[in-house]
Design a protein around this nucleic acid. Structure first.
Lengths: 232, 232
DNA sequence: GTTTGAAAATGACAATTATCATATCTATCT
DNA sequence: AGATAGATATGATAATTGTCATTTTCAAAC
């Protein structure tokens, strides 16, 4: 039997979909899941496919993205420890809307579709958690829509840098603890790679951030928040 | 007792959150709800507020929008007959993320928060429907994000016109059956009002649409689909 | 340490989109 | 029917952003 404690561990986090489940529910999931690992760059799920289960991330980082016109990738959001992948597609009974690719070596639990539904049926609390989760993400998506529609590229870049800083934290030297290329940042901001590079240089010259290679550290977060009109 | 049949009527539509509920469940909702009406321009819910219940639209049209920087409104989506308003906020226990304003005289059923949760508890099917609904909308939001990030204004306008045509249908003369100003269209597309006006003229000159005052009719939908890169 | 390919940086220029000014139209009220 | 306010339309111009070309830097593999 492989690592039956993972679920209880994941469930500790208040934002986890498994939070607040009783012992039996967690035990049930632990029984039904299997553990899988992915190398950096591996694709967990393909846009358009019909997933046969959901992943719950145990360790690692994953980007979710759709392919727009001419194959350009648009990063929708990131998935980290404790987050689920594929639940949207299974619950709405639609093809996967975004591909999921590992940004670093990643470990996840796989819960087959049938087991997933069984846990939902057996645990109303789990169902409510999922509702809460999807409704929260719906609100986040709305914010992203407003940003893309109304802010200019520099404001959006400032916003994304703040989000990355919050989502992934910083290393010992203060750099945001995520390994993204400028192109990937551009694919979040919704702009050209060169524009991101130019604006990162600008922000550096203005003293709001510092950078070393591809790594970025925020120097003046409150100024960035003001620039991005983020009031949280 | 007011119009106890509304809920059964709404529940007929396969996309309704109330679809598939048993007789008792529908009866329960019919008991708990009250009917309200709104004049054109009235606000049903204010961004940032804490709603005390949800609305289920019975007749009329409502726009959902957030206010971006400098008070510019960004229309997220429209709500029509059978759709719910406010459920996202109540379920995620967050403030309302978008204001709701009636685009025409509108009738709705109001279900208080406590009653809403009671129906969820008593009817697992309802809970699953809501999950399906929010997950579907999450996918739609993802599409909108990719469009905003990657398409130019003309492509997005073509896409929005197709969506309006599908959502609201056409009148006897073939015009899209919704009364929107050019400014409101711009607030969906995420651009300046003048840009929308210019591009509507362009589309008209190119023969893809015709217009009469503020009313618009699609003349060549497949060309518009191609322009917008919509393959559905 | 050198090699080497990919990523970052920068400049020049083109395309897109926004802004401002102004004219025309249209629906509604009297 | 005429007045009027708000909406649509259009031109001129400015600002933003994208594209292409080239150079520099970086990091992994040998």
């Amino acid at each position: 039997m492989d690592t039956p404690n993972h679920c209880q561990f994941c469930a500790q986090h208040p934002d986890s979909a498994f939070h607040g489940l009783n012992r039996e529910g967690l035990e049930e999931i632990s029984q039904l899941k299997t553990c899988v690992s992915f190398k950096k760059g591996q694709v967990l799920m393909h846009e358009g496919a019909r997933p046969q289960g959901v992943y719950c991330l145990h360790r690692g980082k994953v980007k979710l993205f759709t392919l727009g016109t001419e194959g350009k990738e648009q990063i929708i959001r990131f998935v980290t420890k404790g987050d689920l992948i594929g639940y949207r597609s299974i619950l709405s009974d639609e093809p996967i809307s975004a591909s999921a690719e590992a940004l670093e070596d990643t470990f996840a639990c796989y819960i087959p579709k049938s087991s997933f539904f069984k846990v939902i049926e057996d645990n109303p609390k789990f169902s409510l958690n999922l509702l809460k989760l999807s409704c929260h993400e719906l609100g986040e998506a709305g914010k992203m829509i407003t940003s893309l529609a109304q802010k200019n590229v520099k404001e959006r870049l400032a916003e994304i840098l703040l989000i990355l800083n919050t989502t992934f934290g910083v290393d010992e030297e203060g750099y945001i603890d995520i390994n993204l290329t400028r192109e990937e940042i551009a694919n979040m901001v919704g702009t050209a790679t060169e524009s991101v590079i130019r604006l990162i240089s600008e922000l550096r010259k203005e003293g709001y951030i510092r950078s070393k290679g591809k790594r970025i550290a925020l120097e003046d977060r409150s100024a960035l928040r003001q620039m991005a009109s983020v009031f949280e």
